[in-house]
């Protein structure tokens, strides 16, 4: 599904990712943890194709296709979704309108028919209900006046409606209380199947306890320095990132 090879990324002339390797198979969920400033969000933005995140070396293959050649919207149409750490408020643009426009833009890019508006509304309503969100939010402007938790849940609603092949969740758990965290985790779990893959970027074990990722990686100073199964996340929770300094980093990508 996704293959990242020796990825170097600069932001404002400063190298943030310094030779990152990662391979994610279909249906797999990978968690990426790491201290602040290690490059986690940079990885998310680079995958989604944000301006200013310049790949200086290495490449990202998504289903065999080099992502660098694709604009953000082309990546979305190809099946990539980034749930933002800080979802943006779009005043004046109605939530339902935006989501339908996005879905139709993706479908059009893939040569598919526009979505039927009744079926669309039904699907969105189901998702809202599952995430315990007020239906009135559909008529409100995108994320405007939403609480922090509502914004994060709205990302999950978008993901569920857009049905990506690969979803990257960038600290979707931050700022959520325990109930909202559970709702978000359930929302993610509902979407899991043998084809769909996830990259879950997080600081905390808590979300991973609900999601049960297949692999856990530690990102530090722009590279994956440790990989393992879920027990790695538990160890990080117990010991913090300090132990990383005591062990020689793996010669990643060498």
């Amino acid at each position: 599904m996704l293959k990242i090879e020796n990825l170097h990324v600069e932001v404002d002339g400063k190298e943030i990712l310094k030779g990152l390797d990662l391979e994610i198979g279909a249906g797999e969920m990978h968690a990426i943890m790491g201290p602040n400033g290690s490059g986690k969000s940079t990885l998310g933005y680079t995958l989604a194709g944000r301006d200013g995140y310049e790949i200086t070396e290495g490449r990202i293959l998504f289903e065999g296709q080099d992502l660098a050649a694709l604009a953000p919207e082309e990546r979305a149409a190809a099946g990539l979704f980034l749930a933002l750490q800080y979802p943006v408020e779009i005043p004046g643009v109605n939530n339902a309108y935006f989501l339908r426009a996005a879905l139709n833009a993706q479908r059009k890019a893939r040569g598919e028919e526009e979505v039927d508006s009744m079926a669309f509304l039904k699907a969105v309503r189901e998702q809202l209900k599952a995430l315990k969100m007020d239906e009135a939010l559909l008529k409100r402007a995108v994320n405007e006046g939403f609480s922090g938790g509502e914004k994060k849940r709205n990302e999950i609603v978008q993901m569920a409606v857009l049905q990506p092949k690969l979803a990257v969740l960038d600290e979707t758990d931050s700022g959520l209380d325990i109930d909202a965290l559970k709702l978000v985790a359930e929302g993610v779990n509902r979407l899991r199947d043998e084809q769909r893959s996830f990259v879950v970027i997080t600081h905390y074990q808590r979300l991973l306890g609900y999601l049960e990722p297949d692999h856990v990686h530690v990102l530090s100073d722009g590279r994956i320095v440790e990989s393992g199964d879920r027990s790695l996340a538990e160890r990080l929770e117990r010991e913090g990132y300090a132990f990383l300094d005591d062990e020689p980093a793996e010669a990643a990508g060498a």
């Binding site: 989604a48 194709g49 944000r50 301006d51 604009a71 953000p72 919207e73 990546r75 979305a76 149409a77 979704f81 980034l82 933002l84 979802p87 943006v88 408020e89 779009i90 935006f98 989501l99 426009a101 996005a102 879905l103 833009a105 993706q106 890019a109 978008q158 857009l162």
Partner: peptide
């Protein structure tokens, strides 16, 4: 930020 957000959901620039 807003423009990127919309594009990341599939809308063209």
């Amino acid at each position: 930020d807003a423009r990127f957000y919309l594009r990341s959901r599939g809308l063209s620039e």
